[in-house]
Deep mutational scan, measured.
Amino acid sequence: KRPMNAFMVWSKIERRKIMEQSPDMHNAEISKRLGKRWKMLKDSEKIPFIREAERLRLKHMADYPDYK
């Protein structure tokens, strides 16, 4: 399994928030909203998620050195 990228790290957190607020919303609609919101974020707002994704990538490389 591949490590999460910055969007996936961010969307995992945000998806929970949306599901708590709107439990009946369909997954496809949540995904569309998340995509739009991610694109609207400033680069500076994405930095913590980019850093976390990089940390996960490095950990994945250490844990699975033969992964292609």
Rank of each mutant, 00 (worst) to 15 (best):
I18W: 08
E45G: 00
K32M: 09
R16T: 09
K12P: 02
P23N: 01
P48F: 07
K59R: 09
R51S: 05
I50F: 12
R2M: 14
A28G: 09
M19Y: 08
A28H: 09
H60I: 09
M25W: 02
A53Y: 01
K42P: 13
R2I: 14
P3D: 15
K1C: 11
R33W: 14
K36C: 10
D66L: 09
M19K: 13
I47D: 10
I13R: 05
L41C: 01
K12C: 10
I50G: 04
Y64F: 11
K1A: 11
R37L: 11
L58I: 11
F7V: 00
D43W: 08
G35I: 14
I50K: 09
G35S: 15
R15Y: 11
A6Y: 01
K42Q: 06
M40H: 10
L56I: 09
H60T: 14
W38P: 00
R16K: 07
A62F: 09
K1H: 12
K39I: 10
Q21Y: 04
M8T: 14
R37P: 00
E29K: 07
R55H: 09
K1T: 13
H60E: 15
P3M: 03
M19V: 12
L41I: 03
A28V: 08
K59A: 13
L56P: 00
K46W: 00
I13M: 10
K59P: 06
K32H: 12
E14R: 00
D24A: 11
K17V: 04
P65Y: 06
A62H: 08
S22P: 01
R15F: 04
P48T: 02
R15C: 06
D66T: 03
E20V: 06
S22F: 14
A62D: 13
I47P: 00
K42C: 06
K32W: 10
K36Q: 15
P3F: 07
D66E: 15
H60A: 15
K46D: 02
N5I: 04
L34P: 09
R55N: 11
I18H: 00
S31C: 09
F49S: 04
P48C: 03
W38L: 00
R2Y: 15
M4I: 14
Q21P: 05
K12E: 15
S22L: 05
F49Y: 13
R37A: 14
E29L: 01
E54K: 01
M61N: 14
M25V: 08
I47F: 08
M61E: 13
I30E: 04
G35V: 15
R2S: 13
S22N: 14
F7H: 01
V9K: 00
N27S: 13
Y67H: 13
R16A: 15
A53P: 05
L41A: 03
E14I: 02
K1W: 12
R51T: 07
F7D: 01
S11K: 06
H26F: 05
M19C: 07
S11L: 01
K46F: 00
K32A: 12
L58F: 07
P23F: 01
G35T: 15
D43C: 05
G35N: 14
R33M: 14
S44R: 08
P65S: 15
M4R: 01
I47Y: 09
L58E: 07
F7L: 00
M19D: 03
L41F: 01
A53N: 05
R37E: 15
S44Q: 15
L56E: 09
W10H: 01
N27A: 14
K12D: 13
R37C: 07
A28T: 10
R57A: 13
A62T: 13
A28W: 06
I47E: 15
D24T: 09
F7Y: 09
S44V: 10
H26A: 14
L58H: 13
P48K: 03
K1M: 06
Y67Q: 15
W38D: 03
K1L: 10
L56N: 07
N27L: 08
P65T: 05
L34S: 02
W10C: 00
I47Q: 13
I50V: 11
E52C: 05
R37Y: 04
R51Y: 08
S44H: 12
D24K: 04
K59H: 14
R15P: 00
W38Q: 11
D66K: 14
A28Q: 08
K39P: 01
F49P: 03
G35E: 15
R51D: 10
R33I: 15
S31Q: 09
E54W: 04
N5H: 03
P3N: 15
R51E: 15
E45N: 05
M61W: 09
E14A: 03
M8I: 10
K39G: 11
A6Q: 00
R16N: 11
A28D: 15
D24V: 03
R51G: 04
R57C: 09
Q21K: 07
D63G: 08
M8H: 12
Y67C: 12
V9N: 02
M25A: 10
R51K: 12
I30D: 01
Y67I: 12
M4A: 08
S22Y: 14
A6P: 05
E54D: 07
E52K: 04
I18V: 07
I30R: 01
R15Q: 10
N27Q: 15
R37D: 08
I18R: 00
K32V: 11
H60G: 14
R2T: 15
E29C: 02
A6G: 12
K32R: 11
R57I: 06
E45L: 09
E52Q: 00
D24I: 04
K59Y: 09
K12H: 12
W38Y: 03
E54Y: 07
K42F: 03
E52H: 04
H60Y: 12
L41M: 15
K68V: 06
K32D: 13
K46T: 03
R33N: 12
A53L: 02
K36L: 13
N27W: 14
S31F: 08
M40E: 15
S11C: 06
M19G: 05
N5K: 00
G35F: 11
P23K: 00
I47K: 09
M61K: 09
K17P: 04
I13W: 03
L58N: 13
S22M: 07
D43A: 08
M25T: 07
K36F: 10
W10N: 04
W10L: 01
N5S: 14
G35D: 15
K17D: 04
K46C: 01
V9L: 14
I18P: 03
P3L: 10
V9D: 03
P48A: 03
Y67P: 14
S44E: 15
F7A: 02
E20A: 07
K36T: 14
P48Q: 08
W10Q: 00
R15H: 05
S31L: 09
K17N: 06
E20D: 12
I18E: 07
L34H: 01
K1D: 15
I50H: 12
K36N: 14
K32Y: 09
D66C: 08
P48S: 03
M19P: 02
H26P: 15
P65Q: 15
I13N: 06
N5Y: 05
K68I: 13
D43I: 08
P23A: 06
I47N: 05
Q21A: 10
K36Y: 13
S11G: 07
I47M: 14
